[in-house]
Computed example of a mutant assay.
Amino acid sequence: MIRNKRLNQKGLTLIELLAVLVILGIVSTIAVISISRVIEDAKDRALVGKAYALRDAANLYLKQKILDGNGLTENITYSDLYDSDYIDEIKDPDTGRYLSSTNPSYIQVSGEMITGVCFIGEKRNLCTYKGVTGPIPVKDLSVEFIQNN
């Protein structure tokens, strides 16, 4: 009786094993593609977030200039903000390296209002609006305006 049970036990056939491996390969491919897309989306949102951080620092800088009675300028540069300690070094979302204090990013000012942001990373930028190179209006800052350098 015990002998018959052993003979009736079956293992996986080669075809079944190959089917399992193919299914695991398909699932892992889908997972890698999905994770890659999530990472790219996070980098896009981080780039927009850096532009907003630049805008917020420029807003404080501008208010201080107004309070001090200093003349207002058309643009506030990343360098102005960094040199005046209104912002720390910004880390580029694509490379993970800090942007130098000479980075050409700037904030556009009109009167006493911030009207646009031009953020330039090492690989990509937020500095083209509707096909025209220049600052993006603050109300329109989004991932759809990210361009490669």
Score class of each variant (00 low, 15 high):
residue 107 I to W: 04
residue 95 T to N: 04
residue 34 S to I: 09
residue 121 G to Y: 15
residue 94 D to F: 13
residue 101 S to P: 00
residue 116 G to M: 03
residue 145 F to Q: 05
residue 97 R to S: 14
residue 49 G to F: 07
residue 117 V to H: 03
residue 35 I to K: 10
residue 92 D to L: 06
residue 105 S to D: 05
residue 122 E to K: 14
residue 49 G to R: 02
residue 47 L to V: 03
residue 27 V to D: 12
residue 60 L to Q: 09
residue 17 L to Q: 08
residue 90 I to V: 14
residue 41 D to Y: 08
residue 120 I to H: 02
residue 95 T to H: 00
residue 39 I to K: 14
residue 109 V to S: 14
residue 38 V to P: 00
residue 41 D to V: 11
residue 99 L to F: 10
residue 128 T to E: 15
residue 26 I to G: 09
residue 6 R to Q: 07
residue 107 I to S: 00
residue 66 I to R: 04
residue 7 L to E: 13
residue 127 C to E: 08
residue 112 E to S: 15
residue 12 L to P: 00
residue 76 I to S: 01
residue 143 V to L: 00
residue 46 A to S: 13
residue 13 T to L: 08
residue 132 V to C: 06
residue 10 K to D: 01
residue 35 I to L: 11
residue 30 I to Y: 11
residue 74 E to V: 08
residue 85 D to K: 07
residue 132 V to K: 15
residue 3 R to I: 08
residue 49 G to E: 04
residue 26 I to V: 15
residue 49 G to T: 13
residue 124 R to G: 06
residue 106 Y to H: 08
residue 134 G to W: 07
residue 106 Y to W: 06
residue 148 N to A: 10
residue 147 Q to F: 10
residue 69 G to T: 08
residue 73 T to F: 08
residue 126 L to E: 08
residue 83 D to G: 03
residue 85 D to E: 11
residue 36 S to F: 09
residue 126 L to C: 00
residue 13 T to E: 04
residue 24 L to R: 08
residue 149 N to C: 01
residue 106 Y to S: 09
residue 138 V to M: 00
residue 42 A to Y: 02
residue 44 D to E: 02
residue 4 N to I: 07
residue 91 K to C: 01
residue 52 Y to N: 12
residue 17 L to R: 10
residue 38 V to C: 05
residue 4 N to W: 13
residue 11 G to P: 02
residue 36 S to D: 12
residue 7 L to I: 10
residue 69 G to A: 14
residue 122 E to G: 03
residue 119 F to P: 10
residue 13 T to R: 11
residue 135 P to W: 05
residue 69 G to M: 09
residue 44 D to N: 14
residue 129 Y to V: 05
residue 58 A to V: 03
residue 41 D to C: 03
residue 97 R to W: 06
residue 111 G to I: 09
residue 26 I to M: 11
residue 98 Y to V: 07
residue 50 K to D: 13
residue 52 Y to C: 05
residue 84 S to A: 14
residue 124 R to W: 03
residue 14 L to T: 13
residue 95 T to W: 00
residue 49 G to V: 07
residue 55 R to V: 15
residue 20 V to I: 13
residue 10 K to G: 01
residue 64 Q to E: 15
residue 74 E to R: 08
residue 47 L to C: 00
residue 109 V to T: 04
residue 3 R to L: 10
residue 55 R to N: 06
residue 97 R to M: 07
residue 72 L to Q: 04
residue 86 Y to S: 01
residue 143 V to I: 14
residue 22 V to M: 12
residue 123 K to H: 08
residue 77 T to V: 09
residue 68 D to A: 12
residue 92 D to W: 04
residue 79 S to D: 05
residue 48 V to W: 01
residue 96 G to V: 09
residue 77 T to K: 11
residue 66 I to Q: 05
residue 43 K to H: 07
residue 128 T to K: 12
residue 79 S to N: 12
residue 126 L to G: 06
residue 103 N to P: 06
residue 12 L to D: 01
residue 106 Y to D: 02
residue 5 K to E: 13
residue 133 T to S: 14
residue 61 Y to N: 01
residue 124 R to T: 11
residue 13 T to Y: 11
residue 148 N to Y: 06
residue 111 G to P: 07
residue 103 N to V: 12
residue 83 D to F: 06
residue 115 T to F: 06
residue 110 S to Q: 13
residue 67 L to V: 01
residue 140 D to Q: 11
residue 69 G to F: 01
residue 92 D to Y: 12
residue 108 Q to C: 01
residue 62 L to D: 05
residue 136 I to K: 00
residue 48 V to S: 09
